[in-house]
Design a protein around this nucleic acid. Structure first.
Lengths: 191, 191, 191, 191
DNA sequence: AATGAATGAGTCTTCATTCAT
DNA sequence: AATGAATGAAGACTCATTCAT
């Protein structure tokens, strides 16, 4: 998924370790050992430990943004598009659970610059999602007594929390959880 | 809120700092400086930095568990009791936003023993909440096509996420957010 | 053996702990806990941790010096007096194995003043022993081609080493070991 | 003697300091200062302060074991081989007096694992020495009324004690002391 | 006689990063 | 492209001792 060159192996190793033990608890030494390279090699490709984290963020954000754009641009009726978007974000979150965990635990640990950049991208994503809800509210198919951004935060809280409880070994597939979550969101928005 | 003896001052300082910068990024030196005591004094009262964290957790957990018990034991109809419980947990989470933030960022950084204890308490809390939902499903006032524990995780995700976006300086009061969140939850559960 | 007042209990606890883990590895906290008193109480009776160590030394030294004087003053022939002295010192060393261990491991850790005093006492003891050997050499009953002080160091090395291997649970009694050691010493001195 | 690279300098400095002041009383800071390197450099080569100690032990043990094997494998009559072994161990102990001092004071301060390993090696050494004595007892050239292992402990006590009194500046050379000690041991074993 | 809170200097160790090769 | 030795600042924690009560 990340490629098997040295940078790819480093990214994979870092992702797994950051998700398991957190950014601060993971030493550069551990990362390079897991990737089977030396410290020098890592600093050849990445400027710093922070760099590794930024790179991981970037990848997930780009991925999710692309998916959302694709769904939102569809011709389907709003509720259907929202349902699809909600389902997709749950499924892709579960498929990249490590990245999501890192995301939540470690944004604060990025340098101010990088943190800002990541947040901006995140905000754009949320805004795209919110515009979908507002469209439905204006069309009268969604209840309008709840501010759209509250609904967005409500829903993305649930999504971010997936990493805290979802286990691949559990009895629900990613898709099933996605259907439930989308169903709850749509249910909550019924007029 | 925590008392003004040395232990109380340490707990307050630690809470604020852990919430701001995360557990790992906060040094014992910073904590004692903020509390105006010496390192030795801290280690006189708390066995370790972990101890401080556990103590903070314990307080919040006890507080929220008590509140939930009180509401759940009421005579009101289930939807009303669930609405109250949801409202309460949002309000109390916002009122103790620092503790909540710490909770989410740092449970993983406790020693295995302590982490287990905290999780167990947390689970009991969720189970109490879930039993309220199941009661409503059996009574036919809540839709039964969504597993109750999925609903619990869905809702608590939203609650935990509050720390990520809610600002005291924003335009919504804790109570208003609580009403919205409770409304969305109840809406999602309508048959 | 040391009395059961607070000072006695402290001395006993300290002796056991120092022998087990060494002076530096034993904290004042552990000593007072083992003695069932508080730190303040300890500092009421002893000026410092070093003080405790000096006190322990003093006791053993006095004990062994007294025994030696008693044996040496006897009317028996020299070889018999030396045999008795050697036997006695082995038996009493084994009976106070903890003190002996402490002695060897920790003399260097006393303050210069105290270390000097302890060494001086030790030297007097060795000199008394040496004079017994010299007496036998002059009388022609001990070989004279080995300097007496070399013999003393040779023998006391063996004695000090007892703490490193002797176990109460082993198959030899203190007295049996004493007989063997005295026998080896006398054997080595045969003309 | 240890080489003059960074690890060698560290080992030399540590040996001298441990012998002078004891393991616990010597700080890592002092060692690196004496070796003229930084703390980080030390931890690059040695995993811990204990590691340094283990390394020092290892060297002496290997040295002495080799010497003993060489002498024991000789064709000479047993008493002569024992005399040579005794002489050698005294001379080599005096030549590495620092290491020996450390040995005695600090084995107890190693981690259980390492302590076990060092003791095991030590035991093998003693057993080789003991087999020499037993050989002589079976051949009837040594008295058989003293258990061989008691004799070994008796003699090695004397040897270990050398560090407590031998001074290079004294009037006896290492070789002279060795002759005396070997003479006393052989004398003690005469039938 | 005894307490126990508080001190503050000191301990070992970790770690991201640099740099000559 | 890659190594690995070396740095130096910072980390959590320990402990003998003091002192007001």
């Amino acid at each position: 998924m990340v490629g098997d060159g040295v940078p790819g192996r480093l990214l994979s190793a870092a992702t797994k370790l950051f998700a398991q033990k957190g950014f601060d608890r993971t030493s550069v030494q551990e990362i390079v050992a897991a990737a089977g390279v030396t410290k020098g090699a890592m600093y050849h490709y990445f400027g710093s430990k922070d760099d590794l984290l930024s790179e991981i963020y970037g990848r997930v954000l780009r991925l999710q943004t692309e998916q959302l754009e694709k769904v939102a641009a569809t011709e389907a009726p709003v509720p259907e598009r929202l349902r699809r978007a909600a389902l997709d974000v749950v499924v892709s979150t579960i498929e990249n659970l490590d990245d999501t965990k890192i995301f939540l635990q470690s944004v604060h640990q990025l340098s101010p610059d990088r943190s800002r950049a990541v947040r901006a991208e995140r905000r754009r994503y949320h805004e795209r999602f919110r515009s979908l809800i507002e469209e439905g509210q204006r069309a009268g198919v969604f209840r309008a007594d709840k501010p759209a951004d509250i609904v967005v935060d409500f829903f993305f809280g649930s999504v971010h929390h997936l990493g805290a409880w979802y286990r691949t070994s559990g009895k629900l597939s990613a898709h099933q959880v996605g259907e439930h979550y989308a169903g709850l969101l749509l249910g909550a928005l019924r007029p």
